[in-house]
Design a protein around this nucleic acid. Sequence first.
DNA 1: AGAAATTCGGATAAATTTATCCTGTTTATG
DNA 2: CATAAACAGGATAAATTTATCCGAATTTCT
Lengths: 144, 144
Amino acid sequence: MFSKACEYGIRASMYIALQSLEGKRVSLKEIAEEIDSPVAFTAKILQQLSRNKIVDSVKGSAGGFQIEKEQIKKIKLSEIVYAIDGDNVYVGCGLGLKKCNANKPCPVHDKFVAIRDNLKNMLESASLQEMTEGLEVGTTYLKR
Amino acid sequence: MFSKACEYGIRASMYIALQSLEGKRVSLKEIAEEIDSPVAFTAKILQQLSRNKIVDSVKGSAGGFQIEKEQIKKIKLSEIVYAIDGDNVYVGCGLGLKKCNANKPCPVHDKFVAIRDNLKNMLESASLQEMTEGLEVGTTYLKR
DNA sequence: AGAAATTCGGATAAATTTATCCTGTTTATG
DNA sequence: CATAAACAGGATAAATTTATCCGAATTTCT
């Protein structure tokens, strides 16, 4: 569904959000440990998220990553996915045709559009805030 | 969503089905042309489909690929996807966790399950027969 | 029997994605 | 101000996916 990079990106964002709500800034190392991802690769992804204003990065000793509380409420999963995977998830034919559309559709066009719209709606309505709620009370997990 | 291999595999199966309904056996070359896919790569995929009894292959001059009419009615897209991509599409956590389940779910578990079930249902209910119908009357396409 | 058309299967190559490493820069802190 | 902790970014490597090539086997047709 998503690329590995995107999976790590989403999980990292969720972890940063979780800690930011506690007022804690977190280091790359800690993030990678807590979401069980390769450190250096995660660094690359955090750079992307930082450039795309999804997360704030602070250099130097006592630096790390954080997300402002207001942002945690606003940021939707769709923005994270878009920052890393682009619009691949939303656009593009299920069967790989370059110019598939309602006018000249592939045989599964309508069925795919329906499913993709579901996915899109889900990602556009799921905020980081909402995602952290289960993490806080221990009913959802970011590794294992 | 699917791998390139799977996209080509689905399109190839649809084209073979379409021609088989006309009583025509089709060659690799013709298939690749008609679905706009790389010939040699398509050959590999057809081998897989042949081993998995999705398509029949006939060697030798005047050989080629075909699908029996009875099979065209029975074969669902899910079988093609499974033959090529395995169960990746259905199983596996949206965020890449190895042991994500209803008991210890990732933050998006339920939402993903819902969407994946949609996809699964769609693939399990869409037969090759159904797919060829639009192709026959020219309302759907396999290339462009 | 020979030639042509065709799939099969192994080896290999190219492209992309995933992952690592290393050097530089920034910043808090003692 | 020196040091250590941390991110940034370029170069590189490993793994996977996508794609090509070629010889062998099979079958039809003349």
